[in-house]
C-alpha cells in the first residue's frame, strides 16, 4: 500500500477539540494584531516586544506539534528534536547574515530566499531521513532511540561550537538587519512574523490532524500500540515511521526558521540536550496524542518560564524538574487528559 492512498481525508472539523482550537488560535491572533494596532498610550496596547515574545511562543507551539506527532501518535520519544529546530534556525540565520555581508563557499547560495527556504526544510529533513533510516531499519526503539537522539543533538552541539564549522562558533549567528529587504526592527515586521508564525501553527495543526485521522495516522497509532502485529499484517513499519519522522523534523525546522528572526539570535545552546527534553515536557504536560494538548503545554510552560525567570530565576529549574516528576507520576494524560476526565465526570453527574 503506497503512502499516498493512506492520506484519505475525513472531514477535519468534526472533532470538537479541533474547531475549538482553531477558533481560539484565530481569535487570539486577531486580538493580538488589533491590540498592537491600538495607539501606544492606550491601556490595552501591546508593544512590539510582547508581540515578539508571543511570536516566540507560537514557534515553540509549532515545535511541540512536531514532537507530539511522533511521540503521541508513533510512540517515538525523540530527545533530539531541538537539533532539527536549530538546523532550521541556522539555515534562516545564514540567510539573514548573508543579507549584510556576502558569505564564503557554499554558504553564499543562502543569500537567495528560495534557497534558504529550501534549506530550512531540507537540512533537518535530510538529517532525519539518514538518521531515521539507520535507526528504524535496525529496529532501534524505545529508550535506545531516545538516548541516541540525545547523543545526536549533543554531538551537533559540540560540532556547532567549533569555529571551523563556519557557523559563528559558540556565539552563533546574530545581529540580523533585514528579511526580504524589510527591516527586522520595524513594527510591521514584528507583526508580520507573528502572523506568519500563527498561520504556520494553524496549518501545521490542521495538517497533523489530517494525518492522524488518515489511514496513515491509524497505522501510526497501531504501530505505537503493537508494532510487531502491524508488521505481521504486512505494513512496512519502518517506512511509516521514517515518513512521519522526517515530516516532524521538517515542521521543527520551519519552527526554528520562524524563531530566529523574532529572537534575533541562533547559537549552539539550541542543540543542548536540555532544550530538547524541555520540548518533551511541554508535550507531556499538555497531553500526548491530542495535538491541541501540545500547543497548550508549550504555551503554559513557556509563559511560566518567562514569568518565573524574571521574578525568581532560581525557582525555575525546581519547578521544571518538579513538573517532570508530577506530570509523569500523576498526570500521565497531561492537562488535556485532565480536562477530558473532568468533562466526562460532569457528563456522568448531569
Amino acid at each position: 500500500m503506497s503512502l499516498a492512498t493512506m492520506f484519505k481525508r475525513n472531514s477535519l472539523l468534526d472533532e470538537r477539540s479541533t474547531w475549538v482550537t482553531s477558533v481560539v488560535l484565530i481569535v487570539g491572533m486577531l486580538a493580538v494584531v488589533v491590540l498592537h494596532a491600538l495607539p501606544s498610550d492606550h491601556a490595552w496596547h501591546l508593544n512590539g516586544s510582547v508581540v515578539s515574545l508571543l511570536g516566540k511562543y507560537l514557534t515553540y507551539m509549532l515545535l511541540a506539534l512536531a514532537v507530539d506527532l511522533i511521540w503521541g501518535y508513533l510512540g517515538i520519544l525523540s530527545l533530539g528534536h531541538g537539533a532539527f529546530f536549530a538546523l532550521g534556525g541556522y539555515a534562516m540565520g545564514l540567510y539573514l547574515t548573508a543579507q549584510d555581508a556576502p558569505l564564503a563557499g557554499w554558504q553564499s547560495a543562502m543569500v537567495h530566499f528560495p534557497v534558504a527556504a529550501l534549506g530550512v526544510v531540507l537540512a533537518p529533513g535530510l538529517l532525519a531521513l539518514v538518521f531515521g533510516w539507520l535507526a528504524f531499519r535496525s529496529r532501534v526503539t524505545g529508550v535506545y532511540f531516545s538516548i541516541i537522539t540525545q547523543a545526536l543533538t549533543f554531538a551537533l552541539m559540540l560540532a556547532f561550537n567549533r569555529n571551523e564549522m563556519g557557523m559563528g562558533g559558540s556565539t552563533g549567528l546574530t545581529r540580523f538587519d533585514e528579511l526580504l529587504s524589510f527591516s527586522l526592527s520595524s513594527e510591521g515586521m514584528t507583526i508580520a512574523l507573528f502572523v506568519a508564525s500563527g498561520v504556520a501553527v494553524l496549518l501545521a495543526f490542521w495538517g497533523c490532524k489530517a494525518i492522524t485521522r488518515s489511514r496513515l495516522g491509524r497505522v501510526c497509532m497501531a504501530t505505537r500500540d503493537a508494532e510487531a502485529r502491524v508488521r505481521f499484517i504486512g505494513y512496512r513499519v519502518e517506512h511509516v515511521k521514517l515518513a512521519v519522522f522526517v515530516l516532524s523534523a521538517m515542521i521543527a525546522g520551519i519552527a526554528g526558521a520562524l524563531y530566529v528572526p523574532q529572537v534575533g539570535i541562533i547559537n549552539p545552546s539550541t542543540f543542548a540536550p536540555l532544550f530538547s527534553i524541555e520540548i518533551v515536557v511541554w508535550v507531556a504536560l499538555g497531553g500526548r496524542a491530542t495535538l491541541y494538548g501540545a500547543l497548550l503545554g508549550a504555551l503554559l510552560v513557556n509563559y511560566f518560564k518567562t514569568l518565573l525567570t524574571g521574578v525568581m530565576p532560581d525557582a525555575w529549574l525546581f519547578l521544571l524538574g518538579g513538573l517532570f516528576v508530577v506530570v509523569t507520576m500523576f498526570l500521565p494524560q497531561g492537562v488535556a487528559g485532565l480536562m477530558a476526565h473532568l468533562r466526562r465526570r460532569r457528563e456522568v453527574t448531569t
Binding site: S146, L317, F318, L320, G321, F324, V325, P332
Partner: peptide, 30 residues
C-alpha cells in the same frame, strides 16, 4: 519515591528522573 511507581514505563521513568536531575542541580546551585 518515584521510580518504583513507574515500573515498566521506561519513557516515563526517563522523564521523571530527568526532572529529578534538574532539581538536584538547582539544589546544589542554591
Amino acid at each position: 519515591s518515584v521510580i518504583r511507581f513507574l515500573k515498566g514505563r521506561p519513557l516515563e521513568t526517563l522523564l521523571a528522573t530527568f526532572g529529578i536531575s534538574l532539581i538536584l542541580q538547582q539544589l546544589v546551585r542554591t
